[in-house]
Amino acid sequence: MSAICVYCASGPVEERYLRLAQQVGEALGAAGHTLVSGGGNVSMMGAVARATRSAGGHTVGIIPTALVEREVADIDADELVVTDTMRQRKQQMDDRADGFITLPGGIGTLEELFETWTGGYLGMHDKPVILLDPFGFYRPLLEWLAQLREAGFVSSAALQRLVVVESVDHAVTLAAGG
Rank of each mutant, 00 (worst) to 15 (best):
H33E: 01
D84I: 01
D74I: 03
S43F: 00
P140I: 03
I107W: 09
E14R: 05
M86Y: 10
R19Q: 10
G99R: 13
Q91Y: 14
L162K: 10
V68F: 08
E112T: 11
L141D: 01
P140M: 12
A176M: 04
G38F: 08
E14T: 06
L103I: 05
C5Q: 04
C5M: 11
V60K: 02
W117N: 06
A21K: 02
Q92T: 05
A66G: 01
S54V: 07
I107H: 15
R53C: 11
V48N: 03
W144N: 09
G136S: 06
P140K: 11
F135E: 14
G120V: 12
E166C: 02
D94Q: 15
F114V: 14
S54K: 15
H58Q: 12
T173K: 15
Q147C: 10
A21M: 01
M44F: 05
G25Y: 11
M1V: 09
T52E: 06
A55D: 00
Q88A: 14
R19W: 01
H125S: 04
V154A: 11
V81D: 00
S167M: 10
V36I: 15
E112W: 10
V36R: 03
V6W: 08
P64F: 07
S10I: 08
T118W: 00
R87S: 07
A66L: 11
E79N: 06
T109L: 11
T116S: 14
S54D: 15
T116Q: 11
T85V: 13
A157F: 05
G29N: 13
R50M: 00
W144K: 13
V81Q: 08
A55R: 12
D126V: 11
G177D: 05
V72M: 12
G29P: 00
D169L: 14
D95H: 04
Q91C: 05
V129L: 07
A66N: 04
L132Q: 03
L131D: 09
L110K: 05
E15L: 09
S167A: 14
G38R: 09
D169I: 02
V42H: 00
A55W: 02
E69Y: 05
M124E: 13
A21Y: 09
T173G: 14
G11V: 15
G25L: 13
M45A: 10
V81H: 01
T109Q: 10
L148F: 01
P134G: 10
A3P: 00
G25R: 05
F137Y: 15
P104Q: 01
V24M: 12
A151K: 15
E15P: 04
I130N: 11
Q88V: 06
V81W: 04
V172I: 12
R19H: 07
T118Q: 00
L162P: 03
G99V: 08
L145M: 14
